[in-house]
Simulated assay, not measured.
Amino acid sequence: MTISSSETITKEIYIECRPETLFSFFTDPDKLVQWMGRHVLLEPRIGGKYRIDINGSDIALGEYKEIVPHERIVMTWGWEKSKLVPPGSSTLTFQLTPRDKGTLLHLIHSDLPATEMASHTQGWTHYMTRLEMLAQGQDPGVDPWSEAPMSSND
């Protein structure tokens, strides 16, 4: 008998921009590619697919499951060619809540294998920092992770 456990990553960050502005960084490929990946294809509608080529080797694939403009995005998440986290095997939720003069971004990444928790936590910490800088009008520069493969994603 094989027992597999699934884990959840939860992260929260306050970003000094309106929810409308922040929301566009998840639905506009020209904006998303500034904080994650080197090539991005998005179909931001229910059932629409996305493809985020991080570095020419690590490619995230999934589908939009729920979109509430300026409030919430739910999508499946996985890695092309991965046996541990194949496309569609985990769920990613971005909740945007107006707070003071900005937005509280709450990320929930669920249904991850326990063995993938550390790498995905590191990844979301990296990308949320880049998103925060960009959404607040700063230039995060070229993503250093876009230059070389992150891991085997097996």
Rank of each mutant, 00 (worst) to 15 (best):
M1R: 04
T2W: 01
S5T: 11
S6H: 15
T8F: 00
T8C: 00
T10N: 05
I15W: 03
I15T: 06
E16L: 11
P19I: 01
E20W: 05
F23R: 06
S24F: 03
T27D: 09
D28A: 07
P29E: 00
L32G: 02
L32N: 02
V33I: 15
V33P: 15
M36Q: 14
M36Y: 10
G37K: 11
R38H: 09
H39Q: 15
V40Q: 07
L41G: 13
L42D: 09
P44K: 00
R45E: 10
R45S: 05
R45C: 03
I46S: 00
I46W: 01
G48S: 04
G48Q: 04
K49S: 15
Y50N: 04
R51A: 08
D53I: 02
N55H: 04
G56A: 06
G56R: 07
S57I: 15
S57L: 15
D58Q: 09
G62A: 02
E63W: 03
E63G: 05
E63M: 12
E63L: 07
Y64P: 14
Y64L: 11
V68R: 10
H70K: 10
H70Q: 09
E71S: 09
I73L: 02
I73K: 00
T76Y: 07
W77K: 05
W77F: 11
G78L: 00
G78K: 03
E80V: 01
K81H: 13
K81Q: 10
S82P: 08
K83S: 05
K83C: 01
V85D: 00
P87T: 05
S89I: 08
S90W: 02
S90M: 04
S90Y: 02
Q95M: 14
L96T: 02
R99N: 15
D100R: 13
K101E: 09
T103G: 03
H106C: 10
L107S: 03
L107C: 06
L107M: 10
L107A: 02
I108G: 00
D111S: 09
D111N: 10
L112I: 09
P113E: 12
E116C: 11
E116L: 07
M117G: 05
S119H: 13
S119M: 13
H120S: 03
H120Q: 09
G123W: 10
W124L: 03
T125V: 14
H126M: 11
H126V: 07
R130H: 13
L131V: 06
L134P: 15
A135R: 04
A135F: 06
G137R: 06
Q138I: 12
Q138C: 12
D139M: 12
D139G: 13
P140N: 08
P140L: 07
V142W: 13
P144Y: 03
P144F: 01
S146R: 14
P149T: 13
M150G: 12
S151H: 15
S151L: 14
S151D: 15
S152R: 09
N153P: 00
N153A: 05
D154M: 05
